[in-house]
Design a binder for these strands. Structure first.
Length: 415
RNA sequence: GCGAUCGUAGCUCAGUUGGUUAGAGCGCCGGUUUGUGGUACCGGAGGUCGGGGAUUCGAGCUCCCUCGGUCGCCCCA
């Protein structure tokens, strides 16, 4: 008989535990708290959707759609996909549930996303994001509010060495004109570009701008600038966003080369990136973006909805948790109840004590295994604030003068 | 998808140029000691050395394949 093999976890998934799990929870709890301060409403969406929801809204040629989605046929032969991001599903929910009636609608959610990528530091196949969106608001103040909230969240998490990198992609027309100019510019020197960039030229020319390849660098400086293609309105819109940020005292830097990977973005695009050589930069490895998003005024139309302006962002919970660092697990127990043996009287007293302590709001747990001799040692190792023992007669033995008075409230017979 | 690197007990790791029953510390279990205390000592359980194949008289150590981890590229949160 061959030995039974224990199945392995799926590649790129993680089992989080202990201090790491506490950091994860801290990020989510902080987000929940902040989101209420800004009056974003909570939403829950399905983890999977029809494949077209993502294919249409993200753009067929994007990496996410073309090679990173977990898509499968269900038993009814329908192509479904595990969500690779939140926005498309939220847009679909907005359209199919008549949420237009609530517009402008401020929504917040968080949960798992799935992308078939090669795992590495800060990058997983099942990962988690926080997400905030404002749907049905076309004014720059919506962008500002979202950004201020993002900045606030990071501060509350204790992350101070991350800065907002901001850009505008202009409205649809500006973006198209710029894109065309970029293609023309880079096509002229196509042979001298890196292999990656030659490919990007076809699929996503904007991406060439933030190429790190040496071969591309010489051409970057003189590439067409979005600012030269911005319409009057687009320019004004961006000015209002930056003015709002300044008024709210959110630090930002202009990042002309910053573009977003997904097709639906217009106007504001941004990423919060660790400052160079900072502790956060080191903690994140090569994954630099911790929170990113932008305006996606064109998205609703791609899903057959009415023209609906919207802005949003998402932040990687794992990445934020890395910046937060390990969080101590719950502090030591208020009390540990040791039953000296498993006689019925000792156990009975022990259970009674546990219930009374917890009712008093004191954290407590029992130790009832191991040799009688070692039980106390086990309790000591957990370094609780108090240890209460019960012997085979069911008599409890209490503590010294420093004992928390609540212990005596719960267990008056301890004296 | 491409590249680098790693994979020995629950954890952290040793394992000499391939050679008899694979080791340590910590943890766990038990015993002794101590006795208002996380002491010390003794003992025990636990590894088909990620998986498969090849070379060899003989492989944890060599080669190939595969699966994972880690770190880059790409992309992204």
């Amino acid at each position: 008989m061959a030995k039974k093999q224990t199945p392995q976890a799926i590649r790129g998934t993680q089992d989080i535990f202990g201090a790491e799990a506490e950091a994860f929870a801290f990020v989510v709890e902080t987000f929940e708290r902040i989101r209420k301060l800004y009056r974003f409403r909570r939403a829950e969406m399905p983890v999977f959707e029809k494949t077209e929801v993502f294919a249409r809204s993200l753009g067929e040629t994007t990496d996410v759609v073309s090679k990173e989605m977990y898509s499968f046929l269900d038993r009814g032969d329908e192509s479904l996909t595990l969500r690779p991001e939140f926005t498309a599903g939220i847009a679909r929910a907005y359209l199919t549930n008549g949420w237009q009636q609530h517009a402008p609608l401020k929504l917040a959610t968080h949960g798992p996303l799935f992308r078939y990528e090669r795992p590495q530091k800060g990058r997983y196949r099942q990962f988690h994001q926080l997400d905030a969106e404002i749907i049905g608001a076309g004014e720059p103040q919506a962008d500002v509010e979202l950004l201020v909230m993002a900045d606030h969240l990071l501060k509350e998490l204790g992350i101070h060495d991350v800065t907002l990198h901001l850009n505008t992609l202009g409205d649809g027309e500006s973006r198209e004109a710029w894109r065309a100019a970029l293609i023309e510019y880079f096509r002229a020197v196509e042979d001298e570009l890196s292999e990656d960039s030659q490919e990007r030229l076809e699929k996503n020319p904007l991406r060439i701008l933030d190429s790190k390849d040496r071969k591309d660098k010489p051409f970057l400086a003189d590439a067409p600038k979005i600012d030269d293609f911005l319409s009057e309105e687009a320019r004004d819109f961006f000015a209002q966003v930056t003015a709002g940020l300044d008024a709210a005292d959110v630090k930002w830097v202009r990042a002309e080369a910053l573009v977003r990977g997904l097709d639906y973005y217009r106007h504001t695009a941004f990423e919060f990136i660790p400052d160079e050589d900072s502790a956060s930069a080191a903690a994140l490895g090569s994954q630099s973006t911790v929170l990113g998003g932008g305006r996606y005024d064109g998205l609703m139309e791609t899903l057959g909805g009415p023209i609906t302006p919207a802005v949003g962002w998402a932040a990687g919970i794992e990445r934020l948790a890395m910046l937060v660092g390990e969080r101590a697990e719950e502090p030591a127990a208020d009390a540990i109840v040791v039953v000296e043996d498993n006689s019925s009287e000792a156990l009975k007293s022990g259970q009674f004590a546990l219930k009374a302590l917890r009712a008093e709001g004191l954290s407590a747990e029992m130790i009832s295994s191991g040799s009688p001799r070692k039980r106390y040692d086990k309790a000591v190792k957990k370094s609780p604030k108090h240890i209460i023992t019960f012997d085979e007669m069911g008599y409890g033995m209490g503590q010294d003068e420093d004992t928390d008075p609540r212990i005596f409230d719960a267990l008056p017979f301890l004296k």
